[in-house]
């Protein structure tokens, strides 16, 4: 390319008036081994532009789908519910402490009272099953022979 032309293009270039095509001409010119000595300083600039153009993004493209996110949050919620369950459950079990007696005499009397009550209630309950004997009587009647 004619040097004169290159100088004109550089003038336009520095004023921000060159087209992409003209800029490509300049890039091509400065790619040469030897350029006009007084234009030498442009060489690293255009070289840098060409080199920079080649740089690549080498990391992965991160794609997280929303579905996975939902599952993640559901599991977090489930764990939270479980933890809350344990938290509210534990003080209830310890609250079932009903106290104790220090005096053995008193303890004996209380146990006796409790057992009496159980036996009384048991007998009362058992007496209501007495009518079941009637079933026996009836079956005997039927299967007599």
């Amino acid at each position: 390319m004619v040097l004169n032309n290159i100088e004109q293009l550089l003038e336009k270039y520095n004023n921000g008036e060159t087209s992409l095509k003209e800029e490509q001409q300049l890039k091509d010119y400065f790619k040469q081994e030897t350029v006009a000595p007084h234009l030498e300083m442009y060489k690293p600039m255009f070289a840098y532009f060409s080199v920079s153009q080649e740089e690549k993004f080498t990391k992965d493209v991160p794609l997280k789908s929303n579905k996975n996110n939902l599952y993640k949050w559901i599991s977090v919620a489930a764990v939270a519910v479980l933890m809350l369950g344990f938290y509210f459950k534990s003080p209830l079990t310890s609250a079932e402490d009903l106290g104790t007696y220090d005096d053995p005499e008193m303890a004996y009397l209380e146990v006796k009272k409790s057992l009496e009550m159980i036996s009384k209630q048991f007998n009362k309950g058992a007496s209501s099953i007495n009518y079941l004997a009637e079933v026996d009587n009836t079956t005997r009647l039927i299967f007599k022979k």
Partner: peptide, 21 residues
Amino acid sequence: QDNNTSLQKQLEFSDSVNWVA
């Protein structure tokens, strides 16, 4: 440095090219 300055020809420029950066 991590530009693609692998070619021998580009290595020559390395310093002045980095200077542009």
